[in-house]
């Protein structure tokens, strides 16, 4: 099992800022690869709190993609929506759940000098 993916799901189930909005509810299955070697992640989300397993069960929404691409998504190198638009990520089921899930994915690793990095809260 690839490390970045495991780490992502650990962070997700630990909760905290930058994870799922509190009104997120439902089940989401992520199928990585295909056939006998498919790696499955099963998320059950209650009011934004996620628990993770590897069950192969029916879910409200399903994401199917390659392991490489998903690793890109959880490390911020691949944008999930763009991936879905070009057919590299297939999405099924509850669209709201899928949109809320992608909010938990990190941004690209590099940052420019402008914007958020320049902020300083006024006291």
């Amino acid at each position: 099992m690839s490390e970045p993916i495991e780490e992502f799901f650990e962070r997700l189930s630990a909760g905290g800022p930058g994870t799922l909005p509190p009104r997120t509810n439902g089940s989401l299955r992520i199928d990585l690869g295909s056939g006998a070697t498919t790696e499955r992640w099963f998320l059950t989300v209650e009011d934004g709190a996620a628990s993770v397993s590897h069950r192969n069960a029916k879910a409200d929404a399903v994401i199917r993609t390659s392991k490489d691409l998903f690793e890109g998504m959880v490390t911020g190198r691949v944008n999930a929506m763009a991936g879905a638009l070009r057919g590299a990520v297939s999405l099924e089921g509850d669209p709201t759940l899928l949109v809320l899930f992608q909010r938990a994915l990190p941004g690209p690793p590099s940052r420019s000098g402008v914007g958020a990095t320049m902020t300083g809260r006024r006291s």
């Binding site: 911020g76 949109v99 809320l100 909010r103 941004g107 690209p108 940052r111 420019s112 914007g115 958020a116």
Partner: peptide
């Protein structure tokens, strides 16, 4: 639902 959640310079997202 689509509110920004991360820093992404390409998309000017915060």
């Amino acid at each position: 639902d689509w509110q920004g959640s991360r820093i992404d310079d390409f998309r000017d997202e915060d």
